[in-house]
Design a protein around this nucleic acid. Structure first.
Length: 255
DNA sequence: ATGGCAGGCTATGCCTGA
């Protein structure tokens, strides 16, 4: 079983890339972020033609999440209980019998100390409570997506320049660790990885060519999933394609 | 040193992203 996450920065623009990538990478589950599509504009027929079922929660212009899967999707949740939020950033679903998947597009936060930054931290706290609740009901849990947090300095191309900045601040990293403390592991760090492994590179200043990036897209696994995880990696290839998303897909294989 | 690109919009410059 292969599970992947990819911030596509507009599914309308990136649909051909998503379909092409699915053919070669063959994920069984693919979580998408920043679809930037209302639900009536979701390309369901194209995705079904590629052999996937889909659940989606989108809005115009911003945000938007979707879950593609070979197996049936059930018990779909698109709002954090108790959080009245028009921004479409979360989609939880059960894939097949008992695999619970929570797809997140975490708030960016813009800059430390801003209103958006505080919204990010509050949102993450609500997510933490929701994940804690979901873990009780679903031992086989995957929490994945664009976290907009580089958990450690080794996830940052220039830790000095980024020190304390948005995506790298102590409070954000603390919020990330609070998720892990529920009993989840960052799948990427279960294995030895190449130095300077990143999942996002700025469009500007030849960020990708110079590998000036951050690792901000993650796949967190509950303990039973950790035991069956055989591989975790970042597929840099699509970032080098024509008209790419600024994020690369991240993946895990489960035995 | 600075800013640089990309997507979307009842657009034609501005907001957001990270």
């Amino acid at each position: 079983m292969r599970i992947a996450s990819w911030n596509v920065n507009s599914l309308k623009v990136r649909l051909p890339q998503v379909l092409s990538w699915c053919e070669t990478a063959a994920p069984d589950v693919l979580a998408l972020q920043e679809t930037k599509l209302t639900d009536e504009n979701f390309p369901l027929l194209d995705i079904e033609a590629a052999g996937y079922r889909a659940a989606y929660s989108g809005q115009k212009t911003y945000n938007g999440v979707a879950l593609l899967a070979r197996a049936p999707l059930s018990d779909i949740v698109t709002d954090i209980p108790g959080l009245d939020d028009p921004q479409r950033r979360i989609l939880a679903a059960t894939v097949g019998d008992d695999l619970r998947v929570i797809n997140l597009y975490v708030v960016n936060g813009q800059a430390v100390g801003t209103e958006k930054y505080h919204y990010k931290l509050q949102w993450l706290e609500q997510v933490r409570a929701f994940v804690a609740n979901q873990l009780q009901a679903f031992p086989r849990l995957v929490v994945l997506g664009d976290f907009n947090i580089a958990p450690e300095d080794r996830d940052v191309h220039d830790p000095v320049a980024w020190n304390g900045q948005i995506l790298c601040s102590d409070m954000e990293r603390q919020a990330f660790r609070a998720l892990l403390a529920l009993g989840l592991k960052d799948s990427f760090r279960l294995f030895e990885q190449p130095q300077d492994s990143f999942s996002w590179w700025d469009y500007r200043a030849a960020g990708f060519r110079r590998n000036r990036g951050l690792r901000i897209d993650h796949i967190l696994l509950s303990e039973p999933m950790v035991r069956s995880c055989t591989r975790s990696w970042i597929d840099r290839d699509p970032r080098g394609w024509e008209r790419p998303s600024d994020h690369a897909p991240v993946l895990v294989d489960l035995a």
